[in-house]
Design a protein around this nucleic acid. Sequence first.
DNA 1: CACCCGTATCTACTCGAGTCAACAGGCCAG
DNA 2: CTGGCCTGTTGACTCGAGTAGATACGGGTG
Lengths: 342, 342
Amino acid sequence: MNSMTTPAVQASRGPVTRKDVARYAGVSTAVVSYVVNGGPKKVAPATEAKVQDAIRVLGYRPNAAARALKLGSSETLGLVVPDISNPFFALFSHAVEDAAAALGYALVLGNSDGNLAKERRNIRNLAARQVDGVLLASVLFEPDLEVLETAEIPSVLLNQERDAPGFNSIGVDLAAGARIAVEHLIGHGHTNIGLAMGTNVSGATDGREVGWREALQEAGLPEGPIVYSAFTRPGGYTAGQRLLASVNRPTAIFATSDMQAIGLLRAVHEAGLSVPGQMAVASFDGSAESEYSWPPLTTVEQPVAAMAEAAVAALVGASRGEKPRHRIFPTTLHVRQSCGCP
Amino acid sequence: MNSMTTPAVQASRGPVTRKDVARYAGVSTAVVSYVVNGGPKKVAPATEAKVQDAIRVLGYRPNAAARALKLGSSETLGLVVPDISNPFFALFSHAVEDAAAALGYALVLGNSDGNLAKERRNIRNLAARQVDGVLLASVLFEPDLEVLETAEIPSVLLNQERDAPGFNSIGVDLAAGARIAVEHLIGHGHTNIGLAMGTNVSGATDGREVGWREALQEAGLPEGPIVYSAFTRPGGYTAGQRLLASVNRPTAIFATSDMQAIGLLRAVHEAGLSVPGQMAVASFDGSAESEYSWPPLTTVEQPVAAMAEAAVAALVGASRGEKPRHRIFPTTLHVRQSCGCP
DNA sequence: CACCCGTATCTACTCGAGTCAACAGGCCAG
DNA sequence: CTGGCCTGTTGACTCGAGTAGATACGGGTG
């Protein structure tokens, strides 16, 4: 029994706590905290060295759960996207993770799989985990804000063209982006320009459709055929087949996402037509994939990194009491070969 | 007056705690816990109803941080990948998130950007956040296990062909996969088959290279040219240019990832060669992108969903004391057109 | 009627870290 | 030599939830 009296220099009892460090360094637990966070009080250099030493020797890592409990913040952000394996969202996620990590936040990821119920479940789950904010790329053009409201978490709506009062939102100028792409196609002399339009679960009209229409109207051209299909490669593929089969087959097509354009290219190739010779193509997103399709796609690039940074900044700003705002980012046309440029 | 006796319906003081619920329902906090988790003690049906009511009315959500602190588990898994915007890892992440969500775990994502220091930082960060396990797709062929060991977290090594004793690991049979692809190319009559080999930061030989070599040896064919480059589209592009410029230009190429193959296709197209007519191509991964390249890629598919499920299962198993093991998954050849099949 | 027992509930301690009020000691001015 | 002040350090309380141990109550048995 008294053979047990020796304190036995921390016989590797799994988790090392602040107390262990304090004991080892011969100081109080408060000092350890002060050292770890450059705390609210100063610590004598000699003491600090002792503590740093103890931390290193024992391999101490502050328990984030305890920290989160005390501070009321988990230093964690949540991101809900329809599908992370969609290259656009993958790219976006990467940028968000970078921006979050730079500010010391971790990122919890959730896929909604284009399913509203799953989107809601994800948001509620994140709320329960006390994330400090959620970034939501909703499956709806106009997301149901109710879930976010009842969850009482700072949030940012992504890919939102419209302003949602009381919410942070971020989006690109879809109409303007579509317009420059279609104008570029018009500049190549095309007079019959089709549209491969992506669809979402809600029915609101997308800015890309209005941009396409505006560009044609301004140039005094008639509207080419429109085909609606999913924002995916297969969606673009079937859209392509239908556009090629339409009575007045267009000589150029604007696709509302790179993925659709990739699918569309396949349909055009299968039909034995040359791109851009017999069918010019331009699209929207500016994903990495677009650079390596054949031919490389002329596409409207979204400033993904800037948007991600702004979204994260809005979230951490919200926790400091800043008021929500709506930001629209400009796009830039990336000219490659699918439009007819050399 | 009885006006004072009313509990004063929670004047919206931000976070609702267990205590608020207890007060509102007229019970102790313990009972609230018992109700919330079907607790270790039974609760009378009538009381339970009162509590459920209070929870609903007040909109109570248990604080995950407090829960994590007490239980020593955050019901969270960490995933560290080189780059989430790489379609293969994006697909994998999605599968992991699905598997984790099915078991009630959230997923924290970290990118290492092919950078060992960042990989380590990510792991340490996850460790501090008391994740219940981490899935690591290391930037190294042979990851440094030290970080994982000192972090003392259950972990799974992904994309590991080799067995790492004491660790869970999961991988595909790279050599076998490469062999069937190369054998398929040989079946098309090719006798000079090049290799576009991806490189990692460590120098160990990849199974895909041995598979390629084995297939050629077994068929009594000489080794075609090898070019090493990054596992990316640009990497494949330059690899393609170099293979096309090599003294004995191959008539078929095996690329060790779909991304490389996509880049390679661009180089071949730019050279004005037809695929598969003048240059056949096969690759490795089975990503969605491979189906929509031109021509569609014949590729070796990895069973991503099964691997993700197994990885998550290994992690939750580990927290129950199961011992680590190494699992290798078989691949399947997806025949499309880039190899020469109609 | 006293006793025991099972059920339902409550009290109180715990997890690990942040931080404030209190306190020790050293130094200088008066 | 004393008083005041600055610097460095500490003890103790707190965050919200899980749960063991104590307690209250009602009913059945001897």
